[in-house]
Amino acid sequence: MSALRIQQGSTSHSAYDLRDYHAEVIEKHTLAVLVDNEAGVLARVIGLFSGRGYNIESLTVAEVNHQSHLSRITVVTTGTRDVIEQIKAQVGRIVPVHEVHDLTVEGPSIERELALFKVEGTGNNRIEALRLAEIFRANVVDSTLESFVFEMTGTSEKIDAFAELMRPLGLVETARTGVAALARGSHI
């Protein structure tokens, strides 16, 4: 029957989704939402999440197509399988929303986040911070005699890991962009 039809490419690891629909497992999904770039569209999407009690782990938005005034919203959300399906359906029916893609189930995808870290310190801490930054391929974008600002791009996990290492070395401030994501491959 239609409801039981198995979607191809349902997880990034398997070609088929064989998970139990009723499982109460909380999953993390990255959604790409293509919207008309009109006033208030972000408020509509966010309002839907808060109004219906859905989670937002991260959110980025910017215009990606100037000719057709389309913006891309990337939302990382968590919920049970049923809740994630509801979120997609609810977002999909917002009038200025053109497309909703669940990058987590639609096939392999790349996710990147940019972060800035301000690390204060002198002596060995300062040297250690610089050494670790090199290992993580973080760039120094600002420097004083007592501080660095590192810039780093990577997955959220990599940024978390770097932040964890910097904390004892004098991390005082962090800014993160949230996740931007695209499906791998040539298709759109």
Partner: peptide, 15 residues
């Protein structure tokens, strides 16, 4: 007509 109504409350066998 509204896909968000499907499986919102009751899981159905055939939407």
């Amino acid at each position: 007509i509204d896909p968000s109504s499907i499986n919102k409350i009751i899981r159905v066998d055939l939407p």
